[in-house]
């Protein structure tokens, strides 16, 4: 009961202290709108990147058999437990202008990631992709290989099997994983501020804006927090509905 109160009280406080009257004014502030749009765009881009990179990786983790698989799986989930700030530092060392890889990106392609909008996407992908991988891998692992065999005996090529059987069957988990991934990316703070900085318009996402506003305009910070809370609740509701429906068809 105490635990419940402990978890709920801050949220209630947020609702109680929310500047309900000034809400529309705060939310129509151009800087806030920019941060909101940037957040949504970057989180969506990070989710797409996670899908492209993460689903094949999840497939390998779930289906392949080779030595070192357990280690690989542990490494993939490392960002889940790693402090995001450390992730940001690590990203700087890898993709920074003098980083292990960033050096070549810079000198060969003239690409600079740190402190740019793509940098935000990279940071968010790094932190959020494991959520997608873990969800999809679990679904692939528990999916019925027998159905894929049945599809093969019906003349379906591997690609057809993947497209018409494997993917649709893990569809609910794929969606759930994407939503989780997107929500995590949206709330990402530590890695983003470390790797991409906090420049309004290019790298200042909502959480960073909340942090900034807290010092200059606390009322606006509360309003922005409220927006993020609404998004989180919406995500949770979407996942609940999805999971309930997913559970109905075994």
């Amino acid at each position: 009961m105490v635990g419940f109160a402990f978890l709920l009280l801050p949220l209630i406080a947020l609702l109680v202290r929310a500047p309900w009257r000034g809400l529309s004014k705060v939310l129509s502030d151009s800087q806030v709108l920019t941060a909101l749009r940037l957040s949504l765009e970057c989180a969506s881009a990070a989710t797409v990147a996670s899908l492209v990179l993460g689903v094949p990786l999840a497939w390998v983790l779930a289906r392949a058999r080779f030595p070192g698989l357990a280690l690989l799986r542990a490494l993939v989930t490392l960002p889940l437990v790693l402090p995001p700030v450390v992730g940001g530092v690590a990203l700087l060392l890898a993709f920074g202008r003098n980083g292990v890889l960033g050096r070549y990106l810079d000198s060969w392609f003239g690409v600079t990631l740190p402190f740019t909008t793509p940098g935000v996407i990279v940071a968010e992908t790094f932190v959020a992709m494991p959520f997608l991988i873990v969800t999809v891998e679990g679904a692939l692992r528990s999916s019925d290989l027998g159905l894929e065999e049945a599809a093969a005996t019906l003349g379906a090529s591997r690609l057809t099997v993947y497209r018409r059987v494997t993917l649709p069957l893990i569809g609910p988990s794929l969606l759930a994983g994407s939503v989780l991934c997107w929500a995590r990316a949206l709330g990402e703070f530590g890695a983003t501020i470390t790797f991409a900085g906090n420049y309004p318009g290019t790298t200042q996402t909502m959480p960073l804006a909340v942090y900034n506003k807290l010092e200059t305009d606390p009322q606006a910070a509360v309003a922005l927090s409220l927006v993020l809370l609404v998004v989180a609740v919406a995500v949770l509701a979407a996942l609940r509905g999805r999971w309930l429906r997913g559970g109905a068809t075994p």
Binding site: D144, G146, E149, T153, P168
Partner: peptide, 13 residues
Amino acid sequence: VGFVFQNYRLFPH
């Protein structure tokens, strides 16, 4: 070759 599996393995979706 047509295969009727023991638990049918119909595609649930």
